[in-house]
Design a protein around this nucleic acid. Sequence first.
RNA 1: GGGAGUUUAGCUCAGCUGGUUCAGAGCAUCUGCCUUACAAGCAGAGGGUCACUGGUUCGAACCCAGUAACUCCCACCA
Length: 876
Amino acid sequence: MSIAKTYLPKEAEERWYKYWLDNNFFRSVPDEREPYTIVIPPPNVTGVLHMGHMLNNTIQDVLIRRARMKGKNACWVPGTDHASIATEAKVVAMLKERGISKKDLTRPEFLDYAWEWKEKYGGIILEQLKKLGASCDWERTKFTMDDNLSEAVIDTFIHLYKKGLIYRGIRMVNWDPQGKTAVSDEEVIRKEVNQKLFYIKYSIVGSSDFLTIATTRPETIMADAAICINPHDERYTHLHGKKAFIPLINREIPVILDDYVTMDFGTGCLKVTPAHDLNDYELGLKHNLPVIDILNDDGTLNAKAEILVGEDRFAARKKIAAMLEEAGALDKVEEYKSQVGFSERTNAVIEPKLSMQWFCKMEEMAKPALDYVLNGDIKLIPEKFINTYRHWMENVKDWCISRQLWWGQQIPAYYLPNGQYVIAKTIEEALELAKEQTQNPQLTAQDLTQEEDVVDTWFSSWLWPISVFDGFKDPDNADINYYYPTNDLVTAPEILFFWVARMIMAGHEFRGQVPFKNVYLTGIVRDKLGRKMSKSLGNSPDPLDLIEKYGADGVRVGMLLSSPAGNDLMFDESYCLQGRNFYNKVWNAFLLVKGWEVDDSLSNPNAVAINWFDSRFNQALIEIEDDFSQYRLSEALMATYKLVWDDFCAWYLEMIKPVYLQPIDRETYTKTIAFFENILKILHPFMPFITEELWHDELFGERDMLDSCIVAQLPINGEINSRLLTDVESVKQIITQVRSIRSGKGMSPKEALPLFVKANSGIDYLLYKAILTKLANLSELNLVADKVAGASSFLVLTDEFYVPLNENIDVEAEKERLQKEKDYLIGFLKSVNAKLTNERFMSNAKPEVIEAEQKKRADAEAKLNIIEEGLSGLAN
RNA sequence: GGGAGUUUAGCUCAGCUGGUUCAGAGCAUCUGCCUUACAAGCAGAGGGUCACUGGUUCGAACCCAGUAACUCCCACCA
């Protein structure tokens, strides 16, 4: 059992990261080079690295490092998002632990705690990104509540208000009773939930009749304003105009008619609860019904409920069911599945709630944002998302931008004593405006109160590509002029709408330009059973553990190996293992080359191998470039993987490697090192750590330290000798065939075999004698004019190969093999001939297709000839 | 309910404008090897009714229609 050679030591990752930082590799300032810019999708400041981040940031790092190596001025701007609800919730929880209640704090006191929290825990995720090797320009790190970024939020709010795009109004909004704030439609996650459908009897006033309604929310009956039935529903029309008693509280409500009610759902009767359901609200408006809001902001029942006051809505639901049962008003209860909205940030069940909020009109801004994508100014990768994007942009609704929180940018609205308000950046400006508006010069700042609400977090992150370059305060500064529009945005499809689309709107609105040219939408990371990774399932590996186990390079390669754009990625640790094995392979190839001793007196016997690999490398490079240009990162990586593992290690190094302990000639040595350098260059974006480590070895000579990352200038249009490439493919086949014969006969690889060639194709196999001899382990290689009797044989193209063995060959088996091949060729020729004699084929097919078929026929005929000769030879 | 997407080897995926009668890759599997770079490896091998049914075509994994299964997005049926 041999002991595995070591791979990249763990401390090396930290060492090289520090080296990059110390040498300012990631630092970017505007210069005369072409810029390449990515702004990071800012992770929540409360967040810790998860697998989605790993994928996302690996992709960004590959793109940015590649651009940097190609000589562009690559700038990756990192930062975090203040995430109002999530952060405020964490701070409240922290305060609770310390025995402090948010209620007892003033706004500034609370914010002090929040900042304290942010300073303490806010940088964790960015530190984690460094472990992955992320080459961000850390000096540019931004936070969505940095002074300039917050100021930009206020300025844009005022700008949009002045433009008439922001308004205030009472609307039914999605209320998060846990965060005690409104959230936007996009922040509501609908999930199917098993519920109960309660059938409740409402007795008709002045009669023994009753109506039964079905509801999932019996706790809201106290907020009922009417019972609605379909005007065509003959079961109930006689009750129209009558009144019914709400059970338990015995309040009278009217029975009304509306087409909205579906006759065949439930009982065909609908309880109308305008305060707690959007449809009911609209129905209420239509029928002029009162709005009775029985819920407090935290989801408990208020005094208007009359009963169960102070109880939580879910507790109340259970209790009221029991009470109804006792009162004989509960007809039955059925199991029922329905969609329930949950808060994206707190996971609380969303309550539709009528409240005064601030809104941003979207329609006007959506149009140009849609056009950018439709006309290709912004490319979505993969393209299939264009449809979804279009659908959303064409049906866009106004955006509720106010949040009843403290952590965030406070809305710059100031209320006057008369209830009116003014919008201004400062209280001084507000006072001036207020005096003007009220014609009252006596007003003082004390008369004004600023709006308590803050804006939605997305109202700051939609400015991100501009605000990170300070493009609001100073719209003509050197950074924004140089870096904006940015190049690629890499993000998850789930935030296409509430982030990507809005950034495009903001880009147009505030700079008249797209914010980025390409949007690469990654897949969702799932486990290998296809389940989304989540804390509750416990199926998400800790990325830092993976890095510990497989190395950052291994994990990066693992993430990329199976993540085509837009397709979800079924993550499995075995990919990381494959990544680790890969960089270990590179490491070992390095050890091999490193161990060679050069003898300058030797001449170079490897010209063919060197020329071949040179061509092969240039060919692969074109393929890799092409994959990258189409953002096919996993394919680019796989092409690189095969080039390195198969072509370089398995074939090239085996071709040229000298016998153990023998020296190598200078030319082969130099060329091989040059190849290796190129390989390190193409590997670097994928595996920055090991390539950096190897790059600095003395094997590759003295070099300017700073050059080590900027390894540009690959021979993109290098020469490709295609004849050599195809001939070597034949040579490889010959080698495989000989090995296969050996393995089929149970012979040791050490046993050398003779090989006789009857070359019909014109390939000069003597050119490849050294390679064939070495890799196929031949005792001799001879060209012959005639068939060799009694030998194992095989065909490559139309060339015949004979391996005489000591034992006699099995004539019958050989006959059978040849016969099989003959049958195949005959069938094949039949099909080719069928085409070539088909008039329609000849007249419809493209000339090059016909030509190809003709060549196929000629080749097959030649082969058939050889096989027939072989067969007749055996017959004798 | 509306829209989009997927279905190719055990697994994850390629397959560009339709053009071989072995439909490709990586991983996994099987067999043989501790051959002095690498057992985290080397050599060899096996593995597929391209979801199903029809159609168009000289020719279909690819185009069209239908069916089935799965996934995602959007949507107010209590």
